[in-house]
Amino acid sequence: MRLNVRCVSAYAFAIENFKRTPEEVDALMSLAEEKLLEICQHGDLLGEYGVRLNVLGKTSLLPPRVQAVITKAEEMTRHNNRAILNLCMPYAARNDIAFAVDSTIEHAIAEGWDREITEDDIAAHLMTAAAGSPPLDVLVRTSGVKRLSDYLLWQCSENTQLQFSNTYWPDFGLWDFVPIILDYQQKVWAGASSLKAVSS
């Protein structure tokens, strides 16, 4: 909020994570339920800052108790419109793309389109677009890992800066984030300057 970032998406749980041991999955589901309940209990804080919470992913795979608290948390913040917090769980970019293609085809049939389906049509049906998220400017991968791990693949395929941090996610804070924002701004300004030079 201090840096005027309008939308943050966090990869909380991958669909692939369901392949972990039942004990691990159950512990992670309990943690998700606990943290979402905390959000519900402190909904006034999200309201104060105007943050809308969205949970993006194949939520039908989650236990009913987690689905119920997701619904409650989303409904509590639905009227907020200053910023967006997307929790992606359980999420996979390939599933997101497949869902968007399927939804686009259904929409085209229902509307009786007599034209080809475009990339823009599919992009409009991605989970992030449906949640009102703006285009993805920066994707940060923490923990020293240099792979995207099936996360927001369509969204980061054009004009998105990829940033890699050695800091592990639980320790990632403002002082890790500020250099990333400054680097992003520098590259945007440099790009704008070169465009002006070309168009002059």
Rank of each mutant, 00 (worst) to 15 (best):
S199K: 13
E116F: 15
M1P: 15
S133F: 08
I180F: 06
N159I: 10
L162Y: 11
V138H: 04
H42C: 03
I97Q: 08
F172E: 04
I109P: 12
A12G: 07
A27S: 04
S149F: 02
A192V: 12
T118G: 11
E119G: 05
L61R: 03
V25W: 02
W154H: 01
M76I: 07
V188M: 04
T77A: 05
D26S: 13
K187G: 05
D44S: 04
L136V: 10
L162F: 00
P134A: 04
I180G: 01
L153D: 10
S9A: 10
P179F: 09
A131F: 11
I122C: 03
L28Y: 13
R6V: 01
E16F: 04
V55E: 09
M89D: 09
T160W: 08
S199E: 07
R78S: 05
F172L: 09
T59N: 11
L3Y: 03
F18K: 07
T104A: 02
V145Y: 14
L62H: 02
K35I: 14
E158C: 13
K146M: 04
S165Y: 13
F13P: 03
I109Y: 10
T21C: 06
E111C: 00
F13Y: 08
Y184N: 05
D121F: 05
E116N: 15
S133D: 01
W113Y: 10
S9N: 11
A68E: 15
V145T: 03
G57D: 01
N86T: 05
Q155G: 01
S194D: 05
N80K: 05
G47W: 03
V178N: 03
L174S: 14
S133W: 07
L62Y: 00
E75S: 06
P90T: 03
D176T: 06
W189T: 14
C88W: 10
L56G: 09
G50D: 06
L3F: 11
L28I: 12
Y91I: 00
A190P: 12
K146N: 04
R115G: 09
G191T: 00
L28K: 12
E33V: 10
R6M: 12
L85S: 05
H42V: 11
H125K: 07
D44G: 02
T59L: 12
K187Y: 08
S60N: 13
